[in-house]
Write a protein that binds this DNA or RNA. Structure first.
Lengths: 149, 149
DNA sequence: GTGATTGCAAACCTTTTGCACGCCA
DNA sequence: TGGCGTGCAAAAGGTTTGCAATCAC
């Protein structure tokens, strides 16, 4: 639950924007603030619905473009999905994902033994590996409980 | 390269259809045959383009629905993507993926040390884990070569 | 001031749905 | 024969693009 350690603060966010010559607009700040502390992996539309509460005339396009820009500068990650809309992860630290094949929820988890996987023999000489993530598939707690009812 | 071991033969495919009370139609057989031996992860439209050569009046809808049906009965997998169209994997055996963040290509690889990851402590009691896959991100060989040119 | 960014609208791509016809079991 | 599966068309959902007005620097 040490979420703070995984996510950029507003100060580092502003600095990241400056480093990339990106203008600091109210829209970008509002979107960034909504993302901090989220434990979920919202779609652009979900972010739009959240931000709209504070910023009633923001457009979905802006949210979309902003999230893609954030992904380019490393403020968010685009996470793997199995069809449907793109999903964004405000937690860019090293972690892994559990995907529920029933409800589609993506659940973050940490596991030290997954964090130091070695580079595979047959790839490491020809490919440049930047990140490694383990994806588990199965049924989440909530869906298992529904089934038994 | 022992692809044959990883994919269903036409006989087991037909049996799988029967087991699931699915009718064996020329469209389904044609789609299945195009998928066997593929080392790639085509979209529905890519499969449609391939099958159309032999089956000129098949519709994209049928290909789409067939691939979803195949996923339900375990003949193909829906693989993780980072936005864009669904991609299907005819190889349903245990393997892992390298994702090139430049060209978007998904490259299969095998790695025995990745195959026996233990279930994570904090999830295994509440979640039912069905499969584990490692996703590497980075630059593939081809993209590295383009960059240096 | 000026170039990046925004909001709007339209276009585009992919997937889903409804329906009548046809074909497999 | 009966019902599943197909092809067509339309709709829906998500993303991208072009453009004029606006805003941050």
């Amino acid at each position: 639950m040490q979420k703070a350690a995984h996510q950029a603060t507003i100060q580092t966010f502003l600095q990241t924007c400056r480093n990339h010559r990106l203008k600091i607009t109210p829209q970008r700040v509002a979107i960034f603030k909504k993302l901090t502390g989220l434990g979920t992996h919202p779609t652009a539309d979900e972010v739009y619905q959240m931000v709209k509460k504070d910023f009633s005339n923001i457009s979905l396009d802006t949210v979309n473009r902003t999230l893609l820009t954030f992904a380019e500068i490393g403020v968010v990650d685009v996470v793997e999905t199995f069809g449907g809309a793109k999903r964004f992860d405000p937690d860019v630290s090293n972690h892994h994902h559990f995907y529920c094949i029933q409800c589609g929820e993506i659940i973050d988890f940490k596991d030290p033994s997954y964090d130091d996987l070695s580079d595979p023999e047959n790839l490491q000489h020809q490919f440049q590996i930047i990140s490694k993530r383990v994806i588990l598939k199965g049924f989440c707690n909530a869906c298992l409980n529904h089934k038994s009812n």
